[in-house]
């Protein structure tokens, strides 16, 4: 089955461009103009040095750093389980939490190469990044 969003994120002045870029098919992260640090989730000032930051486009690719298949949880509809929560280490550096959208959790392992896809929401300017194994 395909992973479908169940709720909208809080879109804030700090994150609006992130969600809008996702709706346009791009995964963006932040880069510090002062120290060059690249980080996720987005913040206006750099968590390394509190310097100013800019958005950069990523390739949307990376590898799985850690994952877990949720078999039983109150926080997701039972008929859509299991679903695979993961930390993806982006090729640009930072690790980000997401889901690996696969029918078969056996396809997922630490080190598996993945690429981003985007799942639409009811709001035109908000989409949710998920990852799938690279064919």
């Amino acid at each position: 089955m395909s992973w479908e969003p169940k709720q909208l994120p809080d879109v804030t002045p700090e994150s609006r461009e992130y969600w809008a870029a996702a709706a346009d098919g791009t995964l963006k992260i932040k880069e510090c103009e002062a120290c060059g640090s690249r980080f996720h989730y987005p913040r206006t000032l750099c968590p390394d040095c509190l310097g100013d930051t800019r958005w950069i486009e990523t390739d949307g690719t990376g590898e799985i750093y850690a994952y877990s298949s949720s078999m039983r949880t109150q926080s997701w509809p039972e008929e859509e389980l299991p679903h695979v929560i993961a930390y993806v280490e982006l090729d640009e550096g930072p690790k980000m939490i997401s889901v690996i959208d696969v029918n078969d959790p056996e396809l997922v392992d630490i080190g598996t190469r993945v690429e981003v896809e985007f799942r639409a929401t009811q709001q035109d300017d908000v989409a949710i990044p998920v990852f799938v194994p690279v064919e």
């Binding site: 850690a66 994952y67 877990s68 949720s70 949880t73 926080s75 679903h83 929560i85 993961a86 939490i97």
Partner: peptide
């Protein structure tokens, strides 16, 4: 919390977070 928009919206919970640590 503000981080929930980048984490909880995926459907994770406290067990899956600790499970990832165990896996790694």
């Amino acid at each position: 919390i503000l981080q929930d928009s980048f984490e909880r919206i995926y459907g994770m919970n406290i067990v899956s977070m600790y499970a990832m640590a165990a896996k790694r």
